[in-house]
């Protein structure tokens, strides 16, 4: 039974628990952020050098009740659901034990308030993040979504209309940052740690591989990681800053070259960055330069909207409720959910 679009949806509560951020937000008409609360578990996972699934699941259960209450309160709603027209929740991709906590919470709130619930694809939510800050970029857009979990290049021809151009065949970009940072003893999360030390390094000190640079839109980072490890073994005296700078340069070169080529090919009005790695300073400056040279818009969301948050989930959920319809109460979680091409 296909759902029907619901008219008159204005205020949506979004819930995000796919990885290590416990987040809730209230967004009006898919565009105006009334509140956005993110409780990061970074400190909880830092000593393990990555997200520990069981610890993340446990933390979500404890954090979600106060995070939801804060988001409702800050938006002028309340826990009785005053003014809330629907509940949106990330149902994949992500860690199954974490996703299920958010899905259970969302369905229960929808039952309590007697409003519709809608499951949102986390990847689609990241695409909506760019529209939250700058709704009039023009179409089509090319979005480079890079985080600890995903590396995707997507053409967005209109809200809800996507074409997956390419993705990673092994590690996500952010995962490569985490693994290399851990190997270099720089701590977790790896992205900011490498970004900081790379500022003092020579990006041309080592010629790390740039996989598939001129070949299609897919990415591969595992060979690069291996190359970093081999280089450090061979040159134990190498300055960590030089290794980090050369590694960062290799990642950014590939990301920017492919995004730029994709934008040209589809005739994009703008290139958007999304995901936690979009906070990387070199990626931001290089993407901006490339777009300026090519005469297209560059949209670099603020850090709060790059990283996982629930405002983007509420925005995507609002669009789904108004244009596609709600999810059934049997909504579950799909840890391997993909972005379905709809263009």
């Amino acid at each position: 039974m296909a759902p029907d679009p619901i008219p008159g949806i204005h205020r949506v509560l979004g819930i995000e628990t796919s990885c290590d951020e416990t987040a809730a937000a209230v967004v009006d008409d898919g565009a105006h952020i009334a509140s956005s609360v993110v409780s990061s578990q970074i400190d909880l996972h830092a000593r393990y050098g990555g997200v520990v699934p069981e610890l993340a699941g446990r933390a979500h259960v404890e954090l979600l009740t106060p995070v939801v209450a804060d988001a409702l309160d800050a938006a002028g709603s309340d826990t009785a659901g005053a003014g809330i027209d629907g509940v949106a929740v990330t149902y994949g991709p992500g860690l199954i034990g974490s996703l299920l906590v958010g899905v259970a919470e969302a369905k229960a709130l929808a039952l309590a308030w007697d409003v519709p619930v809608v499951g949102v694809n986390h990847l689609e939510a990241h695409l909506f993040a760019s529209l939250l800050e700058q709704p009039d970029l023009g179409w089509p857009l090319v979005v480079l979504l890079v985080s600890g979990g995903h590396t995707l290049l997507v053409e967005v021809s209109a809200p809800g209309r996507y074409r997956l151009l390419g993705g990673t065949v092994d590690d996500a970009a952010g995962e490569a940052f985490d693994k290399v940072a851990r190997y270099l003893g720089l701590g977790y999360p790896g992205g900011p740690a490498i970004d900081a030390i790379a500022e003092d390094g020579d990006p041309s000190a080592f010629a790390f591989p740039r996989a598939f640079l001129d070949d299609g839109y897919d990415f591969s980072f595992s060979g690069l990681k291996t190359s970093v490890v081999n280089t450090v073994r061979k040159h134990p005296e190498a300055a960590t800053a030089d290794v980090a700078a050369s590694f960062r340069q290799a990642v950014v070169d590939v990301l920017v070259a492919k995004a730029r080529r994709a934008a040209r090919e589809v005739g994009a009005k703008a290139l958007c960055l999304a995901g936690g790695v979009a906070a990387n300073s070199l990626l931001r400056s290089r993407a901006q330069e490339a777009c300026a040279e090519d005469g297209i818009g560059a949209f670099l969301p603020t850090r709060a909207l790059c990283t996982d948050n629930a405002a983007m989930v509420a925005a995507a959920g609002w669009w789904r409720l108004a244009n596609v319809g709600p999810s059934p109460l049997t909504l579950g979680a799909d840890p391997n959910l993909r972005l379905v091409p709809t263009a």
């Binding site: 393990y48 050098g49 990555g50 997200v51 520990v52 699934p53 069981e54 610890l55 446990r58 991709p93 992500g94 860690l95 979990g149 995903h150 590396t151 995707l152 997956l164 151009l165 390419g166 993705g167 990673t168 065949v169 092994d170 590690d171 996500a172 995962e175 299609g216 839109y217 897919d218 990415f219 591969s220 840890p335 391997n336 993909r338 972005l339």
Partner: peptide
């Protein structure tokens, strides 16, 4: 106690579109 191992394989699978992938 929580099993505090990081299972990288349990993370999101690769999304590559190519034949190679």
């Amino acid at each position: 106690e929580a099993d505090a191992r990081i299972n990288w394989e349990q993370r999101i699978p690769p999304t590559g579109t190519s034949v190679r992938a």
